[in-house]
């Protein structure tokens, strides 16, 4: 079923693109962009839901109930659900689009592997799933794996002055790092653990992806690279890229404000008067900053608020 619904159509689309552009590297790039564009609405939906959830975590009512019911998980869950309902938030809103995207992205990855077919068995299995009305398999297969200096079926190395450099793997490491930093949300009060997870993932993911790009066929490394660049572009266009995470001086300038914002927002207004920040219109850090600057001197630290 997975094969018929996802892998077969994806592979045929990839082969169809290849039959038009006659370049497998370019086909992987175009195919990745095409599939990621198709899943773009889901990404937007996911980002909106994530932002709403992040904003909620800055809500004093939310913070207060975390403190109040920290020893009663059931009651905390119950109160959280009440708050979600009151504010019209679907707690699964950010997971669902991601869950729908995951099989598509996995299918994209697997169809790239399938199309590379570097052995008789793999090519035979590829030949069996080609839609004959779309593609003349005999003329097209096997695909020409040469792209720029790469054999897309082999791990990539570019020899410069006698040194074989894994250029693609280096680019994958850089873009994965960049991507994970840019998509990392601003830290929210009481969420040190989440921040630490994010920071660690920013470190581990580039290493893992770099290792895979170094050791796997360069066709897959190319897919990783294009996918990373697309994600960065997507976040940037949606205004969700946190550039301050990678631009040091900007971070330094903004850091005190952001810190103050969190402190202020955490304890500022009585619960009833709190407005949930509209995520699509106002970046959360800025909003928090504004709140904090007006309340900073008056408000005691959050711990004293208990």
């Amino acid at each position: 079923m997975w094969q018929t619904i996802i892998i077969q159509p994806f592979t045929n689309i990839l082969l169809l693109i290849n039959s038009l552009v006659h370049n497998f590297g370019l086909s992987i790039i175009l195919f990745t962009i095409l599939i990621r564009l198709l899943t773009h609405p889901l990404t937007v939906q996911q980002l909106k839901a994530t932002k709403t959830m992040q904003s909620l975590q800055e809500d004093p009512r939310y913070i207060k109930m975390q403190e109040k019911y920290k020893n009663d998980k059931d009651k905390l869950a119950e109160e959280q659900m009440k708050l979600y309902k009151e504010l019209g938030i679907n707690p699964m809103g950010s997971c669902l689009p991601l869950l729908i995207q995951l099989p598509i992205i996995l299918g994209l990855y697997q169809s790239v592997i399938k199309a590379m077919a570097a052995s008789p068995l793999e090519l035979f299995n590829l030949e069996q799933i080609v839609y004959p009305r779309w593609i003349n398999a005999a003329n097209l297969l096997p695909l020409n794996n040469q792209f720029l200096w790469m054999d897309l079926g082999q791990p990539e190395r570019l020899t410069i002055f006698g040194v074989a450099l894994p250029v693609l793997a280096i680019l994958v490491v850089l873009t994965t790092f960049l991507q994970s930093k840019l998509v990392q949300p601003p830290a929210t009060p009481g969420n040190d653990q989440a921040a630490m997870v994010n920071n660690s993932m920013s470190l581990y993911m580039p290493i893992l992806m770099g290792f895979m790009a170094y050791s796997l066929a360069s066709g897959l490394a190319l897919y990783f690279l294009v996918s990373n660049i697309f994600t960065i572009g997507q976040y940037a266009l949606l205004g969700r890229a946190n550039w301050r995470n990678i631009i040091p001086f900007q971070k330094k300038e903004d850091a005190p404000k952001a810190g103050a914002a969190k402190a202020g927002a955490a304890k500022a207004v009585p619960a009833k008067n709190v407005q949930i920040v509209e995520p699509a219109k106002t970046p959360s850090s800025k909003t928090s900053g504004t709140t904090s600057s007006s309340n900073k001197k008056k408000r005691p630290p959050r711990k004293q608020h208990k």
Partner: peptide
């Protein structure tokens, strides 16, 4: 997700 041995054959 990695193909282990880079290709599979008989």
């Amino acid at each position: 997700c990695m193909p282990g041995p880079r290709v599979v054959d008989a």
